[in-house]
Design a protein around this nucleic acid. Sequence first.
DNA 1: GTAGGGTTAG
Length: 727
Amino acid sequence: MSSLSLNTVAVSPHPTKPNTTTTTATTTTTLIQLKQVHAQILRRSSNLNPSSNSLLLQLLVSSCTLSPHHLDYALRVFDQIPTPHTHLSNTFLRELSRKAEPKKALLVYERVRRKEGLGVDRFTFPPLLKAVSKASALAEGMEIHGLAAKLGFDSDPFVETGLVGMYAACGRILEARLVFDKMSHRDVVTWSIMIDGYCQSGLFDYVLQLFEEMKASNVKPDEIVLSKIVSACGHAKNLSYGKAIHEFITENNIVVDPHLQSALVTMYASCGSIDFAQELFNKMSTKNLIVSTAMVCAYSKLGQVENARMIFDQLVEKDLVCWSAMISGYAESDRPQEALKLFNEMQVLGIKPDQVTMLSVISACAHLGALDQAKWIHLYVDKNGFGRALPISNALIDMYAKCGSLERARQVFEKMRRKDVISWTSMISAFAMHGNANDALNFFYQMQDEKIEPNGVTFVGVLYACSHSGLVEEGRRIFSSMINEHNITPKHEHYGCMVDLLGRANLLREALDLVETMPLAPNVVIWGSLMAACQVHGETELGEFAAKQLLELEPDHDGALVILSNIYAKERRWNDVGEVRNLMNYRGISKERGHSRIESNNEVHEFLMADRYHKQADQIYEKLDEVVSELKQVGYAPNTCRVMVDLEEEEKKEMVLCHSEKLALCYGLISNAKGSCIRIVKNLRICEDCHTFMKLVSKVYGREIVVRDRTRFHHCKNGVCSCKDYW
DNA sequence: GTAGGGTTAG
């Protein structure tokens, strides 16, 4: 009993200072008072008869239950009551299930069952089932269902509704529906729970179907069930149904509360009607934080991050969710520097990030590809107690891989106590992007030895590794085992990898066969990868065909037009090149501008082609001249065959020599410590000439050079690249 | 008569 004695009663954490908030003061005092009462009961218990003692303890539990801070204490007192009133256990259960304490509610249930007498009635089940739902404890839920049936409570509408919710929350949507269908009376709450179950399971077509049934059975929908329906329309991209519901809401004068507001705005945005969402948002007389955050997300998802920022900046009071939404907006729109800048601003204001924020920040850092920045974020994560969470570790693996450090990615992986399919897949993709196919395959087999089942994403990583290393046979075998042994239906990305695998290996006929016989309609990516392979292997005719198929699907696709003109340029068909270029000018399409980044002294420096904005531009170009003449002595000659414009040879050479990655490299040679590794991140694919250039510099200057291009890493050392020139 | 519905937005 020592743990309950007065000696251990908590004192104020700051005895010399007055309590800063009144709530802390009252709860502390109340707990002290309760403990004093408890001590009195214990002291006098020998003089009291057992039933009045029990009554006093029950009163004590009731008082503790009033405050969420005292639930643990209440649980301990509850344990001392031999036969608690069912009424008391029910109240106690309700409190525990409403709070984030579902496991404790189940504990109470266990104890009630073990005590004398029955201890349960029909009122016990709704809170109990709610706790089971929160804990997703299916086995316990089924046992409770059995007990309810045995006691004949399973035809009570409240109990039945609880059972529907329990099965839905445990992912057993069919069982939920079975209970639902058997009910003789369903009200709006029952329908709402069933509809929510379908929403959670992603079965949005069923949601709309069920809503029609609900209306047909004359149950009047309220704002809660409507907000679920509206959100389902958004997920199902069913704009016409969404609009109809919106009209229904207006016609029936249903209160549009903030939940419904944000559901409507999000629905319009995800159905492609952002203008409509904005209009609706403008019409709202009071713009609360949640609806504004929904708008920030809506614009971010469309990549219209400037518009998101405008709404963000108009908000006077912003909470963590809103900051996180804006940060992730930048991270996912490939604007990592803004994301990290915002993260700093947020911290200056004293807003503490949570796990969701950190995941966006880590992802931003992965996009940026800056290793020093990555190390800093990793330290921050560990220092602030995020490091043990599985999703965070998984994100760190990806971050280090994308920042060029396979070793550090692997260190994070090795240190993890628990690894899930995402951890393994992240490592496999890491090996794949660094051209290390053997380790990718080893990990793929090892994860299965450890009974982790690969998923569709894992196979993308493995096939990608095969394709980037020319492992044609292995790739074919794995592709068929994915279908036949792992029962995964291949999606576009898997066919994309296979087309890539065959195309790179110059098996273009077979690649085309696959495209023509696959059960899915080929998309832009598939034609694109066939087209790129044709460009590499000089298959003009097929390349032109693939490019034209692609342009049928997406007439303004800049990549297709660029590659088409490259194919023509390689054949010196300048008239055709001119035609493509005119088309691009006419339609206002421009090739994405190449840029390269390099980190130096904790700063990220960015270069465009032939750009002179850098404050050390003179030195950089001087270095470039020096490097070029050094390399010429070992046989380097600028390779201009990829320059798509009809220029004099000398002008073409000038263009190639000013590519942004060469400028970044020269800056690295000037500014980074002698002998250190030079890491460059390029947004497009590296060109053949720059690739040769990097290899030669690694030999002549004795420096390790790591270049991340749009699709993979090139580690150049001693004149050799890790990609073995197979990219 | 003590009971059932919104992880609202990241």
